[in-house]
Simulated scan of single mutants.
Amino acid sequence: MSLTLADINAAVRLAMPGITVVGNDFITGNPDDCAYVRITGGGPPSEWSSVAYPAFQVVIRSKLAATAEAKGNALIAALHGKTEFMLGSTRVVKCLADQSTPWYLGPDESARALYSVNFTLTTSL
Score class of each variant (00 low, 15 high):
R112K: 09
A97V: 08
F56D: 02
A65Y: 02
L114N: 07
D25V: 08
V93K: 11
L114A: 01
A6H: 04
A97C: 03
N73D: 15
V93T: 11
A77H: 06
A10Y: 02
T101A: 15
W48T: 12
L121D: 01
D7Y: 04
I76A: 03
A77W: 02
D7K: 05
S89W: 08
M1F: 08
I19M: 14
M1W: 06
Y115P: 00
R112Y: 10
D98C: 06
I19P: 03
V59F: 04
A111G: 11
I39C: 12
A74S: 13
L105S: 10
T40C: 04
I39L: 15
G18I: 03
C34S: 14
V51C: 10
L121I: 04
I39E: 15
R61D: 12
A97W: 01
K63S: 13
L5S: 13
V22L: 07
S124W: 04
S110L: 12
L125R: 05
P54V: 03
P102D: 12
T101E: 15
K94L: 15
L96G: 06
Q99P: 03
G106L: 07
A78L: 05
S110M: 09
K82S: 15
T120I: 03
A70F: 03
L3R: 05
N73T: 10
A11I: 09
T4H: 07
P17A: 05
P17M: 08
R112D: 11
E109I: 07
D108R: 00
H80K: 03
A55L: 04
T90S: 15
M86C: 10
F119L: 06
D33I: 07
S100W: 12
V21M: 04
G23F: 06
R61H: 06
T4W: 07
S62Q: 02
K63Y: 11
A6T: 13
T67I: 11
G88Y: 01
F119V: 00
Y53G: 12
I39Y: 09
F119S: 01
G43Y: 00
I19N: 05
A55I: 01
G29I: 09
V22T: 13
A97L: 08
V21C: 11
A78V: 01
L14T: 12
Y36W: 09
L114Q: 12
Y104C: 13
E69A: 13
P102W: 06
S89P: 06
L96Y: 08
A111Q: 12
L96T: 14
M16T: 09
N118I: 00
N73I: 09
A52G: 14
A35F: 01
A111I: 11
P31T: 05
Q99L: 11
T90C: 15
T120C: 04
A11Y: 00
P102S: 13
V22M: 09
A52M: 08
I8P: 00
P102A: 14
G18L: 06
P54K: 03
S116N: 07
A35K: 00
G23D: 02
A113V: 02
L87T: 05
A6G: 03
G88C: 14
S50M: 11
L114W: 04
L64H: 12
I39Q: 15
G42F: 01
S62V: 03
P17C: 06
A74M: 01
L105N: 12
E69F: 12
N24T: 13
A35L: 01
Y53A: 10
V37Y: 01
V51F: 11
C34Y: 02
D32W: 02
I76C: 03
S116C: 05
